[in-house]
Design a protein around this nucleic acid. Structure first.
Lengths: 339, 339
DNA sequence: GCATCGAATCGAAGCGCTTCGACGATCCGG
DNA sequence: CCGGATCGTCGAAGCGCTTCGATTCGATGC
């Protein structure tokens, strides 16, 4: 743990010159800068974090609040945490993780102790308590997800409605007239902000095309997933020629398994499209068309906005919706000729 | 963001008195302390993190390095991160998350900038590069997991060998003479430190009882998990009357499904015991006996050791293995009478 | 040849806290 | 009733850095 003073001595300059050389905030003669950089490298010098925070009024830390509730879908959440942390590092920021009840209490604590320059909010609930908190604290806050009441907040998210609509578009274009939708368990529609948006997007776009549509939200009924199997059967037997899936990877696998059990080929007999998946839909048999939820897209934008706020640049409050893209893998085709 | 100076003025004392009253490091008259606490509460005062770090030589931060590799089993890793963060909060510590390549680079960075008081290492590989790093940096480091070369390191982990042995004990006592073992995919035995330990524990204990045993490490072959199904069939048809499972929850579910498909009842025809599971084995049908891996146990011990190191108390280097416990749920029984 | 200017560097003042040593007041024993 | 503990409180010295204003020096213009 070398100190700036030692670097200064080694390079034969004053400590302020070292500081300016390393931060680049004032011009330094090329030769001097070289000597300083070399000394710093040799001593493995890094500015002391505490001193830097105190003097520089920057902590270089983002607080990431992510409740990690017991029933959360771990892989997706992990993907967001990872994506945020990678995006933050691009700006030389570290990520402080606030989980569970600390997601709120920690947010307050971190804000009033000045431990973080900004707060990023993940796993947003429709009536999230962190919304009120965000309005109260003086630390810039960015939501990755859209709470019901988002007045005055900065929010970033995939345009889930458009994503579902995009899936419907593709199927309608292929000639499908009757679509089935398999969603998350009903509880997810209370707890999370996005499942209702996907459902709405599906329903509204299907309606606008005058398509028949049916929505099933199977319960999470243990590892056998009988709910999902039943849903597939009901939808297919009800005449759906295409399924739109917005559920976890296990449910995807089970749905495909059930289609196979029913002797329906994908895509010849039934088309399948996944919406809002964070996992790899090419790992299924067959690979599934996807309108994915890309964590890095949301997180990078969120981090960029957070940086702008930290830098005091003007950032308009409001919801930034990221346009979805469709990634085909051959799991949709025209419907079979009516039997 | 009130400052200590404002609290002092509000309470009519000097700032050092405020500091001592709030930290409890010197006796303060009860009445004075009350006034100070009240003022602090009213102003929502929290010591500035940077100033505290600088003056107090404590950052109140643990760095948690967790690579989060793409192929890691998200739920288990999330459970460890969560457990660590909860354990840390008990000591008023926050957790800084270092993922991916930052797991190593960040460890170095954090150590030399004094951003964290200690480093906790998760998802330990047998030949983990963080081992060398840990020896080089001056920040106390605790491993949750046991790398091959752990000379001089402080490591904490479940005693996986004993866990597998415990499962074998139970089955042997019930009279089973032939055991099957379903493990993780072969790659996991290179990448992670604990699968080989479970396997070894199983084999050695089975051998010491003179039991027949067979080990299968099914490939992760996509959502259909045909490898696991095949493994179950092979083992059962090979005469195993009990299965020891050390694999992810999906494989558990598939294994049970396959047993049902084979018309083998659990536990009447085949006993099933899970080893090292972080998930809830009572969610299966039927609920499965478990010798679980309890993240909070490892993480709490790790955090306690880290605290001792931070406090300069003597901590002996070495591996601390946590004794396993068996949690029966009715999925094992005596083997069926020989047919 | 002298005032002027810009570039490069330096010194010193904090940032907000913890902690050390000191000090006044109160208490006790003798 | 005085000397010495003891208790509670205070002032001031840092912690290691950033940043502001000042200074130095060679180059430039007139």
């Amino acid at each position: 743990m070398a100190k700036i003073h030692e670097v200064a001595k080694a390079a034969g300059v004053s400590i302020s010159t070292v500081s300016y050389a390393l931060s680049g905030k004032r011009p330094i003669a090329p030769d001097t800068r070289r000597r300083i950089e070399e000394a710093a490298r040799e001593l493995d010098y890094r500015p002391n974090a505490g001193a830097r925070m105190l003097a520089g009024r920057r902590t270089q830390i983002f607080a990431l609040t992510e409740p990690f509730r017991a029933d959360t879908h771990a892989p997706a959440h992990m993907a967001f945490v990872l994506a945020t942390s990678i995006a933050a590092r691009r700006y030389e920021y570290d990520v402080l993780l606030l989980t569970e009840e600390e997601a709120s209490a920690g947010m307050r604590r971190v804000a009033s102790s000045g431990l973080a320059d900004a707060v990023l909010v993940l796993d947003v609930a429709p009536d999230d308590e962190r919304v009120a908190l965000a309005r109260r604290i003086s630390v810039p806050t960015v939501f990755i997800g859209v709470p019901d009441d988002h007045e005055g907040l900065v929010c970033v998210d995939l345009d889930f409605e458009a994503a579902a609509a995009l899936a419907v578009d593709g199927l309608a274009e292929l000639g499908h007239r009757s679509l089935g939708f398999i969603g998350h368990p009903p509880a997810a529609y209370e707890r999370s902000n996005f499942p209702p948006r996907v459902r709405r997007g599906f329903e509204q776009r299907a309606d606008s095309f005058g398509l028949e549509r049916a929505v099933v939200l199977p319960e999470a009924d243990g590892p056998r997933r009988t709910g999902v199997r039943q849903a597939v059967r009901d939808l297919v037997e009800g005449g759906a020629t295409a399924l739109v899936l917005h559920c976890d990877d296990g449910a995807h696998a089970v749905a495909l398994d059930e289609l196979a059990a029913l002797d329906r080929r994908v895509p010849e007999d039934v088309s399948v499209v996944s919406v809002g998946a964070t996992f790899d839909t090419t790992a299924f048999v067959p690979p599934i068309d996807s309108v994915p939820l890309v964590p890095s897209a949301s997180c990078e934008l969120a981090v960029e906005l957070a940086m702008r706020l930290v830098d005091g640049e003007p950032v308009e409050a409001g919801v930034r919706l990221i346009a979805p893209t469709s990634v085909p893998h051959g799991s949709s085709a025209p419907p079979p000729p009516a039997s």
